[in-house]
Design a protein around this nucleic acid. Structure first.
Lengths: 148, 148
DNA sequence: GAATTCACTTGCAATTTGCAAGTAATAATA
DNA sequence: TATTATTACTTGCAAATTGCAAGTGAATTC
């Protein structure tokens, strides 16, 4: 039984974004894909923040519904689904990078300290580094070692 | 009775941001301050998306707790509280602008169409326009007509 | 001094979350 | 080939959160 509540509360651009991806879990899924190269339900489930199984399933469905992710069967293992990011999802990378930048500044214990180089690049020119990372993630590479 | 669940699920910079401001309502409050110049509980309540009174109160408390907003008494009207944005909150403007940019691109009915000029400026150089807007909002001005 | 405004709080039903425990399909192993 | 594992979920249920509606108390206006 699917929930079909398609009505947006408003078309304010801030609200539109929030209704699409502005959920605790949704952006963590994207993080897992972009930074950690995860692609399957089981991989997402292992994230340190601890998804509940039903929540993970519902958020994956939602992200697919709004066109940020797509689901495909695994080429050789019929049990697995591959969740990959669409162009619409890739366009969220600059925004995710802004979150990283803000947190790097204000969280004294931030693990952003482990990606100092990337944080610098974002601060210096988010658009530019985003373009590079988008290309990488599009190829299925996740963020590569040169930034870590 | 206050909720005191201070423990972060992780210090991943994406997660840190989400736990600070990654709530449907939290960013709408910031939007109201930045774009609409709102400052009081009653003004926030009037927002088109419809805050529940208790949710609004709890989100304001939360944003104050994490240092994004501060609360001050109204100068002349003792009933009112003025909620204003801190420097930490102002630093979220580039991120909010990225949300606007993404929504402007993907929501065909976006009200971003009413702020085409601002969207262009963000696309062209988010950091630069953010700096200008931060100064304005810091002075209590909200986003001024020249961008609308 | 009575009525209104303002910023909340409270009560409560409905929804959502978070576990734990399935389940059905496919794959790997004996 | 039969059994055991994996994988991606679903289901059930208690607990937490949300969303109304209806207060409450202090300050302000009339």
């Amino acid at each position: 039984m699917k929930k079909e509540k398609n009505k947006l509360r408003s078309h304010c651009p801030v609200n539109f974004g929030l209704e699409a991806f502005g959920d605790r879990w949704a952006l963590l899924i994207l993080r897992d894909i972009i930074f950690r190269g995860k692609r399957t339900y089981g991989e997402f489930l292992k994230s340190e923040e601890g998804f509940a199984t039903n929540i993970l399933a519902s958020r994956l469905d939602h992200l697919i519904k709004v066109g940020i992710l797509k689901r495909e069967g695994h080429e050789t293992d019929g049990r697995k689904d591959i969740f990959s990011i669409t162009e619409k999802g890739l366009d969220l990378i600059p925004l995710i990078f802004e979150i990283v930048l803000w947190s790097a500044k204000y969280d004294t214990d931030s693990e952003a300290k482990r990606i100092v180089r990337l944080v610098e690049l974002i601060r210096d020119d988010n658009r530019k580094i985003s373009r590079k990372v988008i290309e990488q993630v599009r190829r299925g590479e996740a963020i590569v070692a040169e930034y870590l």
